[in-house]
Lab assay of single mutants.
Amino acid sequence: KLNEKEKELCQMVRLVPGAYLEYKSALLNECNKQGGLRLAQARALIKIDVNKTRKIYDFLIREGYI
């Protein structure tokens, strides 16, 4: 299910792929509902370490998901 970049992200932030996909889905759904997504909203949405949230958020922006 994951592409190579997503696999690298999961290894870097030490997330299991299932958890990453869950977080990605939640962030994309919220982004679609709101018409955009700020980091503060992402942090409130997924209750994990803020540094991990930041890396996931930055990755999703860089890859054009949000």
Score class of each variant (00 low, 15 high):
A42Q: 04
L9K: 01
D49M: 10
R43L: 15
K55H: 12
N3T: 15
R38G: 14
K24S: 02
N32G: 11
F59G: 02
C31Y: 15
L27S: 00
E22V: 07
K33V: 08
L15A: 00
E22A: 12
L9T: 01
Q34R: 13
L9A: 00
L15Y: 07
A42D: 06
V13E: 12
A42E: 05
A44Q: 14
E30Q: 11
L9S: 02
L21P: 00
N32T: 12
L27Q: 03
E8Q: 14
I66Q: 05
K24P: 01
C31G: 07
A42I: 06
K5N: 06
E4M: 10
K1M: 13
S25P: 00
R62L: 04
D58Y: 02
Q11N: 13
L28R: 09
L60H: 00
R14L: 02
T53H: 01
E22G: 08
P17F: 00
V16A: 15
G35A: 05
I61R: 12
Q11Y: 05
L60W: 05
Y65S: 12
E4Q: 11
R38Y: 08
D58T: 06
Y23M: 12
K5M: 05
F59P: 00
R62H: 11
I46Q: 06
I46P: 08
A44M: 08
D49H: 07
R38K: 14
K1P: 04
Y20N: 01
Y23F: 11
A26S: 08
K1D: 13
E63M: 05
F59R: 02
L9Q: 01
L15D: 04
I66P: 08
E4P: 12
P17A: 03
R38P: 09
A19R: 14
E4R: 13
L27E: 01
N29F: 06
I66N: 04
G36F: 10
V16Y: 12
K55W: 06
K55S: 11
V13S: 04
L9V: 03
R38L: 13
G35S: 06
K5G: 08
Q41C: 05
L27F: 05
K47Y: 03
E6M: 05
A19Q: 14
E30K: 06
F59Y: 07
L21I: 09
K55I: 12
Q11W: 00
C10R: 01
K5P: 03
L9D: 04
D49W: 09
G64R: 11
E30W: 09
R38D: 15
R14C: 13
L27T: 03
K55A: 14
Q11T: 11
V50A: 14
Q41F: 02
D58W: 04
L27K: 01
D49K: 03
G64A: 04
Q41D: 15
K7Y: 08
A44D: 15
L45T: 09
Y57I: 07
L39A: 07
Y20M: 01
K33I: 10
E8K: 11
L9E: 02
L15R: 00
F59L: 04
K55N: 13
Q34I: 07
Y20C: 02
A26M: 15
Q34H: 13
I48K: 10
P17E: 08
L27A: 00
Y23R: 03
E30A: 14
E63D: 07
I66Y: 03
L27I: 09
C10W: 02
K55R: 11
L9F: 15
Y65N: 06
Y23N: 02
I48H: 10
L2P: 02
G36E: 10
E8C: 09
K33F: 05
K55C: 12
L21G: 01
I48C: 14
E6W: 06
P17Q: 04
A40M: 08
K47F: 00
I48G: 12
V50D: 15
D49N: 11
G18D: 15
P17L: 00
T53D: 04
C31T: 10
G64I: 06
K5Q: 10
Q11H: 10
A44C: 10
G18W: 07
Y20T: 05
I61M: 14
Y57G: 04
A19E: 15
K52P: 10
T53F: 07
L15H: 02
K55T: 12
A19D: 15
L39E: 11
I56S: 02
G64F: 01
K47R: 12
E22Q: 12
R62G: 09
S25K: 15
G35L: 05
Y23E: 00
V16C: 14
L39P: 09
G64M: 01
